[in-house]
């Protein structure tokens, strides 16, 4: 799936990257994107992983294939 939105870095559990998509949904990105900053507008390509478990617990996990700025 593809999702466009804003990258957010939240300082919870030692740090987690979130995508606040334009459709209002929030995804926890795994693995964490590198070379981006909080507030970047991005287009993320990945797979929703409904069964993912993590200690960040910040929302449904999106297994990231690629991220690019828009």
């Amino acid at each position: 799936m593809k999702a466009i939105g804003t990258l957010r870095h939240a300082d919870i559990e030692g740090g987690v990257w979130l995508l606040v998509a334009d459709d209002g949904r929030r995804w926890q990105l795994s693995p964490a994107p590198r070379g981006f900053s909080d507030g970047d507008r991005v287009d993320v390509d990945g797979d929703a992983d409904a069964q993912a478990v993590s200690f960040q617990m910040a929302g449904p996990v999106l297994r990231v294939r690629s991220v690019r700025r828009v």
Binding site: A50, A52, S54, F55, P60
Partner: peptide, 8 residues
């Protein structure tokens, strides 16, 4: 201290 959104 862990969790996920999906029921298992």
């Amino acid at each position: 201290s862990l969790g996920g959104a999906g029921y298992s």
